[in-house]
Write a protein that binds this DNA or RNA. Structure first.
Lengths: 230, 230, 230, 230
DNA sequence: AATGAATGAGCCTTCATTCAT
DNA sequence: GATGAATGAAGGCTCATTCAT
């Protein structure tokens, strides 16, 4: 009895070794949707299990509890998003940093505005930022840190090597902020501009604008930095 | 001491006719803190009442229930923030729009990064954006819409009259997004840059950066628009 | 403070010395309606006070509590019923017992089927019989006992002096039962015979039937008893 | 022991498909007792569960709530009463209607005056009549209507075919009323005639009296109807 | 004479979890 | 591998009542 439980936990902790249970998969899917809609506290294990056509005890059996399910859900959908909209090739060498910035912004927006399931991840993360659970720090380290590190590197290249670390961070946040607003403030945007929601879903158009809006500032800063240092 | 302060603030909210109950005031204060920390679903009426040194029944008596308390809390602290960092004079005539933009950004950041109680409002709003409750739409209309309208007007003046509405919206969101990132992604920032939190609290510095980063893009767009139209 | 309270209680216990407070009167009226509709446990002090346009504390002030209000309500509306449909003259001497029986039945039915407020009393009593409160025994002694005593006396006269006490009781219950069915089973009657409710409210017609149905049995018993004793 | 008994009874209720849970059975038993004693509003889920040695949550799990438990209790004990004192054979053909009337009355009284658990149903119904809950109409249709229909049919045969429907109803109520008085007015009877309670429990004696008292009236009406119609 | 504020006990229900099967 | 039954804690809320005014 105990052994079975431990075996499960072990497999879960192994990370990649997720057993291919159908019930388990249905739970991950349903939980993603419900958590994204109602938050961790607002979602009940019962509702999730009903949505997954599973028994009430299934969550505890497969994930050891609500918290366990939640962190697995976050990790799972993060992986799905990463796979559907990969970012690795963006850091590829030799391409102009401004081109890579454009790709980065477009990928970030795609991940956030995807209407399919991976959007759940974006909404889950938005909730985590607003009121973090125990799962938060881990996901930041595993998911956000490399992403932001990409952006930092690109910015560093644009601003030039001698740019101040603080300035690089601030510019990084200026870019990230412009992207994330479409995730975090989605409801506000919908309420403010009746005709806007249609537009707010076109990640390509938004990316274009952000680049167009940001490049002049970036170039100015690049010039200035160089001037300052001289 | 605290009570006097709260009473003062109440009295300034003319029109809503909030009774001068001490318990009621303590509840608003405590609920602000607890809701901001744990979210609507995560906060329990019992905990709030304990923090306010009030009876469990007080919430129902004064606010008709948990939801009533919550919406009053949001409205109340929104009013407090608006009063502590007013925005009305920013729309004042005759000042250069770029100057007014700088003031606007600084005020928004002050409201969001204030370490005192009004910050609660910012965190409450961050939670609302992530998973909105019934109170959300009302607050957006009463609180956010006028704020964003200010910004829109300023942007419109900078870009020139013939600027596209869609473009104005996108620029507006680019500014707002840069500001809000310091609210929404505060946890990420803390986890990413150990030395940054210190800096992230200096609203003035942040405002300076945002203006410095955005003005070149704005001017470029202003030029371009004029050119396009010609 | 305490004195005032005691004075109140004293006056209430005096029975006839009800002070002519308007609030108090409104409470008696509203409480009669609400108690009759929802029963003692189902009615809340708050609802009664709202219906009476009085303060929540009024019930405790005027009646010392919910139970006090309830017993006063029962006593009050019993008195109203007794006054509106008096029974005393029925026991008047010299009239034929069968005539007095007819009047008795008609009066009982009038009290029970009256559409005005005194009906409240009837419904309250029906509830008391189903699940009695502390107020029950008192009201039975003050209100029901004399009523039934009237009927017993009439039956005794009809059956003849030598009739068995047990038989007199059973006949008494047979008459009472026929009358009370229209009170207790009102809902059943309504559900059973769609066309009946109209008829069920005509106390005169019902009384006629009950007399017509019962007299043959009564006369038979009277004859039998006399025969038995001989 | 008790459980076995309850299980048996359940199994006989074919069609409703009640699961064979021990806790569920204990709840039905305890709830019958407590509801009968204190009414729907007066009985608390906690007390019922304590009496059933079950967890507070059991009521919600098995019955979906207090109201669900209540209606199941009513339906259950109605079925038990129907089974313990069946009425079907009374409508059997070829027997003299007056004999069947005697059996009907005796059965009704047995159901109402049974000292065992099924009496709960009688008291529950008395409470329902006094202040009906949502469960009432259903029980009337499933339980009372067929019963009264039996009686109506018997009365119709006694009075003869040409009897008026209204008259049949009134006679039906006269019989029912005499029976029900021993249920509804039990407390009054106890308070009025100290020596009576002993007698009030002998359903056979009461039935005898009711028949003796009613037959003359019935025959008279039968004769009269026939005369009238001629 | 009457009231608005406040109270603590108790209400029914839902929660995540555990158990035996 | 999976489930229906059962649990204790906690949830928000309503209750009759009391208090100071």
């Amino acid at each position: 009895m105990l052994n079975i439980c431990l075996k499960r936990l072990f497999e879960m902790n192994a990370g990649t070794k997720e057993p291919d249970c159908e019930t388990r998969a249905r739970l991950l899917d349903a939980a993603g949707r419900v958590f994204a809609e109602r938050g961790f506290n607002g979602a009940s294990v019962r509702d999730i299990c009903k949505a997954a056509r599973a028994n009430v005890a299934a969550v505890n059996y497969h994930f050891g509890g609500k918290a366990g399910l939640y962190s697995q859900v976050v990790a799972h959908w993060a992986a799905v998003a990463r796979q559907k909209y990969p970012m690795e090739n963006i850091a590829a060498p030799r391409r102009a940093p401004e081109e890579r910035l454009r790709d980065f912004v477009r990928t970030i927006l795609n991940r956030m505005l995807d209407e399919e399931r991976p959007l759940w991840h974006a909404r889950l993360m938005a909730q985590e930022m607003a009121s973090p659970t125990a799962a938060f720090d881990g996901v930041v380290k595993a998911f956000y840190r490399p992403t932001i590190e990409h952006l930092r590197q690109i910015i560093r290249e644009i601003l030039g090597r001698k740019a101040n670390d603080e300035k690089i961070d601030r510019v990084t946040f200026s870019i990230m902020g412009q992207c994330f607003y479409y995730l975090h403030a989605r409801r506000i945007i919908e309420l403010m501009s009746p005709e806007f929601p249609r537009i707010a879903k076109d990640a390509g158009k938004i990316a274009e604008h952000i680049i167009e809006f940001s490049l002049p500032g970036l170039r100015q800063l690049a010039r200035k930095k160089r001037t300052t240092r001289k």
